[in-house]
Amino acid sequence: MFMFYVLFWSFIKLSSAQIPQFGPCPDINVMANFNSTKYSGTWYEAERYFAYYELGGKCVRAEYRVKHDDTIVITNQQESAMTGMRIVVRGEALQQSRSQPAKMLVRVMPVPLDLATPYWVVHTNYDSYSVVWSCNDYNYFHTENAWILTRQREPSLDTLQKAYTIVDENNMSRAYFAKTDHTNCTEIEPEKMLEIV
């Protein structure tokens, strides 16, 4: 079972940033004076770049909780559109530096390997939307990912437009975003839930 976790999360690390591009990661400005406490709570995934580990996933949501040391505990969950099974994954977001608290690294718990993935909050108004960026350098190319998160499962057009403005201002491609399916998101019986902790 342990080897399953190692292989599973190794795959997650390699596929966590899905859009390959030539050259190094682009310069993306992150939010100044990011407040992790205000960021805590429930976020729904409105749109995302393609990622293998979310293939067939719907009803994606995340709970963020701040610990006393400013570490953010993240509980991500999604349902399989094919089986209805819910997958729950927990991790921690650690600030890379105190001068730029919006730049974080996410580590999945309790895997004992260094599988940290960048998680940069480009901008959020805390109340309705957040634009998140991730990029990994591999010498001559890089892979990137991005998410638009919202406080409501079905955000208003005004909320999405505010997020798109941030995307455009940072030269992030809108072409790679796909809308996350949030239809028929219901509670699932415990016996159908697969929880990885």
Rank of each mutant, 00 (worst) to 15 (best):
M3V: 15
Y5H: 14
Y5V: 14
V6P: 09
W9T: 14
A17D: 00
I19Q: 04
P20R: 01
P24L: 00
P26R: 05
D27K: 10
D27V: 12
N29K: 05
N29Y: 02
T37F: 09
Y39K: 08
W43H: 14
A51P: 03
E54L: 02
E54K: 13
G56A: 01
E63W: 05
Y64Q: 06
Y64V: 03
H68M: 02
V73I: 09
Q78I: 01
E79I: 01
A81W: 00
A81L: 00
G84E: 00
G84T: 12
R86G: 03
R90D: 00
G91A: 05
E92G: 13
A93G: 14
L94Q: 10
M104I: 08
L113K: 14
L113P: 06
L115P: 05
T117A: 15
T117N: 11
W120R: 07
T124M: 01
N125I: 10
Y126Q: 06
V132R: 03
W133I: 02
C135D: 04
N136K: 09
N136S: 10
Y138G: 02
T143R: 07
N145W: 07
W147M: 10
T150N: 08
Q152T: 15
R153W: 06
E154H: 15
P155Y: 15
P155D: 06
T165E: 06
I166H: 10
V167F: 02
V167N: 07
D168V: 14
E169Q: 10
R174I: 04
A175D: 07
Y176G: 14
A178Y: 13
D181P: 12
N184G: 05
E189S: 08
